[in-house]
Every structure is written in C-alpha cells, then in structure tokens.
C-alpha cells in the first residue's frame, strides 16, 4: 500500500513537474514571440525605416503576429505603398480586430487599398462585411466590383448569394465573370452547409446566365444533383 501511495505521489509530482516545465516552456516561447512582435512593431513605427525594412517586418508578422500588432499595422492598410504587405501580415491573424480594420478600409479607401481590403475580407469570410461588399458590386471601378463579387462568393452566405444573383443580371465583362465565380463559391458553401435547395437555386441561375458554356453545363448538373439529394 505504502509503495502504491509512493508511486502515485511520484507520478503526481512528475505530472506537476512536467506541467510546470510545459507551462514555463510555453511562457518562454510566448515571451520570445511577444518580444519579436514588439521589435517588429517598432520597425513599422520608425519614421526612418525603409520600405524593405517595413516589408520584412510585415512578412514576419504574417507568421508570428497576433492581436497586439493590429493597431500598428492597420493604418498601413490605407497606404498605397504599404497596403499589400499590411494585408500580407494581417490576413492570416485569427482575430476579429483584423476584420474590423479591413471593414474600416472598405468604408473609406479607394483604388488598390480598397480592392485588397475587400479581397482579404473574402479570404477571412467576414459575414459582417456582406452589406458593404454588396454595395461595392455596382462600383464604378470594375476592379472593385470584381473583388467584391469574389469576396462575397467566398463568404458564401445566403444574403451574399442573393446580392450576387442580383448583380449577375446587371453586370457585364469582368464584373459579370466575377459574379459567376462568386456564385459558384457561394453555391458550394451553401451545399456544404446542407442548404441544398438554396444552392440548387444558385446553380440554376448560373445555368441560365451568360457564363461560359462549360460552366453552365456544370451548374446545371450540380443543380440537378442537389435537387435529387
């Protein structure tokens, strides 16, 4: 009995010790990461930092950055020169502060920073961005409309799909092609969520659109399969 207790105590001690070591290791890694991020943020805030130095800092933040770097990186999203690398850093960070920052850019920016922010919201599948992105489907800049259509498709909710269906009948050339692409993405998302009827409706809209023939055939086939499912 004494032996058993001793073994159990030893096991508990070992477990506690392992846990402590693991916690310490975790804190050390965390501290190292925090320090690294702080230094990178410092580079971004240095007025004399070169474009290359900032790009390098943003590149590393794409790998190690977290919520703490968002306030320093977000202002760069509006900067023509730095916007793309700012997105490069922020896009993979799983924190809603990034979505907030990107949505703010969509509300204010133009040109490439706007196109980039729209695209990143699509990659991040930010549902809150759907109303703003839907409004961009009719933007005078066709590249903005294209970005919005693809982003809405990636988000893939029913409101996003409905906005795209509306745009499909009104758009031409590149924005029309992007609406086709967006609708494919949205239909796939809806089908994956088990919303077969809604997905089939989207595919049927595509099958009767001015999409390339091959795409219309695929859409018709997918609609039929979903109707049977």
């Amino acid at each position: 009995m004494k032996t058993q207790v001793a073994v159990m105590a030893g096991a508990a001690l070992l477990a506690a010790s392992s846990s402590a070591r693991a916690q310490k290791a975790s804190q050390t890694a965390g501290n190292r990461r925090r320090k690294g991020q702080d230094e990178l943020i410092e580079v971004l805030q240095k007025p004399e930092a070169t474009r290359k130095e900032k790009a390098d800092a943003l590149r590393v933040l794409a790998q190690v950055g977290d919520r703490a770097c968002v306030p320093a990186v977000a202002p760069l999203l509006r900067d023509e020169e730095a916007a793309d690398m700012a997105r490069y850093a922020l896009e993979p960070i799983p924190d809603p502060a990034v979505d907030d920052a990107l949505r703010a850019v969509v509300a204010e920016a133009q040109g490439r920073p706007l196109i980039g922010a729209i695209a990143s919201l699509g990659v991040r599948r930010d549902v809150k961005a759907v109303p703003a992105l839907s409004a961009k489907l009719a933007d005078a800049d066709p590249q903005v409309a294209v970005a919005a259509a693809k982003a809405l498709g990636s988000i893939g909710t029913l409101p996003a799909a409905n906005a795209l269906r509306d745009a499909l009948g009104k758009s031409q050339a590149a924005p029309h092609a992007a609406a086709v692409e967006g609708l494919f993405r949205a239909a796939e998302s809806l089908a994956a969520l088990g919303r077969h009827a809604e997905a089939a409706e989207v595919y049927e809209a595509l099958a009767h659109s001015a999409a390339p023939e091959g795409a219309k055939e695929v859409a018709a086939k997918r609609a039929e399969e979903l109707r049977k499912a």
Partner: peptide, 16 residues
Amino acid sequence: AEANRFLTRAQRAPWI
C-alpha cells in the same frame, strides 16, 4: 497554427 500560416499568402491587389 504556426505551420498553417503557410497554407496561403495574401495576394497583391489587384492581382487576386
């Protein structure tokens, strides 16, 4: 999570 950050890269506008 560290490795998963390499699964994609943000693309430069408008080449997205």
